[in-house]
Amino acid sequence: MGAYGSWRGQSFARQVTRVVGGWLLAAAMLAMLGFLLKPESVLSSARTRSASPSA
């Protein structure tokens, strides 16, 4: 992401874009990790609940 390089001479918009892009990447990675590490018991109960008839 270039956060540890020299920021000298770069526009403010470029700096903000890099910082926000880094945070969005980190948030997406954490969300994916949370989904992948979700316990199977939680997933299976959600599937059976949605598959049962509501009548």
Rank of each mutant, 00 (worst) to 15 (best):
S45F: 09
T17S: 08
E40N: 12
G5K: 08
G9I: 04
L43H: 09
M1W: 03
T17R: 14
L24C: 10
A55Y: 02
L25K: 11
R47L: 14
G22W: 11
V42T: 09
A28E: 00
Y4W: 08
E40F: 06
S44A: 14
G2R: 06
S50K: 13
Q15C: 09
S52T: 09
S52L: 08
R18K: 12
A31V: 12
S6A: 13
L33K: 03
V20E: 07
A3W: 14
R49M: 11
L24F: 10
R49T: 10
S44T: 07
V19C: 01
A46T: 04
R14T: 12
G22K: 07
G34Y: 01
Q15F: 13
G2Y: 04
A55D: 02
R49L: 13
L25I: 12
K38N: 09
A3S: 05
S44G: 05
S54H: 12
S52Y: 09
Y4L: 15
W23C: 14
Q10Y: 02
A46D: 13
R8C: 11
M1V: 07
S41K: 04
Y4H: 03
K38C: 04
G21H: 01
T48V: 05
L30D: 07
R18S: 04
A51V: 07
A31D: 02
L43R: 02
E40L: 09
W23L: 15
T48Q: 15
S6D: 15
S50Q: 14
V16T: 11
T48W: 12
S11H: 01
A27P: 03
G21Q: 03
R14S: 11
A27C: 15
S6L: 01
L24G: 10
G34C: 02
F12N: 04
L30Y: 08
S11D: 10
A13N: 09
R8G: 10
F35G: 11
M32F: 14
V20D: 02
V16S: 00
P39V: 04
A27D: 11
A3E: 15
S11W: 03
L37T: 08
L43E: 12
A27F: 13
A27M: 10
L43A: 13
M1C: 06
A3K: 01
L25D: 05
G2L: 00
L36D: 05
F35A: 10
Q15G: 04
M29T: 13
E40G: 08
F35Q: 13
A51G: 12
G22V: 01
A51M: 06
L24S: 03
A55T: 01
S50G: 01
G2V: 00
P39F: 05
Y4F: 12
V19G: 00
Q15T: 06
A31G: 05
K38W: 06
G22A: 01
R8S: 06
G5T: 13
M1A: 14
L36G: 10
G2F: 02
T17E: 09
S44K: 15
A13R: 06
V16F: 10
K38E: 15
T48D: 15
S44Q: 12
Q10V: 08
